[in-house]
């Protein structure tokens, strides 16, 4: 694979991961976590694990983001710390 693309995706994974922890808005954290899952899905696909990539795309980027957003909608949007 083209290593430049891999490097860009890896950097995006790290940025999304740190951002999901650091951001104060929980809705933003949920969306960043979805973006993180999608980048991981791309990485799995690059490494040839297509089945894992498919699972990551449907579970991580799809349904879990929806469940997080639903939970944020029912609780509070701000973190305490």
């Amino acid at each position: 694979m083209i290593w430049q693309i891999e490097l860009i995706i890896l950097i995006a994974v790290v940025i999304c991961g740190i951002g999901a922890i650091a951001v104060r808005d929980l809705l933003g954290a949920a969306i960043l976590f979805g973006a993180y899952s999608f980048m991981m899905c791309l990485l799995w696909a690059i490494m040839g694990a297509v089945d894992v990539a498919f699972t990551e795309a449907s579970v991580g980027a799809g349904v879990s983001t929806v469940l997080f957003v639903a939970t944020v909608f029912r609780t509070s949007r701000r973190t305490k710390d």
């Binding site: 089945d51 699972t55 579970v59 349904v63």
Partner: peptide
């Protein structure tokens, strides 16, 4: 092809959601 019960089940659930 890639896929199976887990992925298909999640997509089915997502359609209902």
């Amino acid at each position: 092809s890639p896929g199976g019960g887990f992925q298909g089940g999640v997509i089915l659930g997502a359609s209902v959601i």
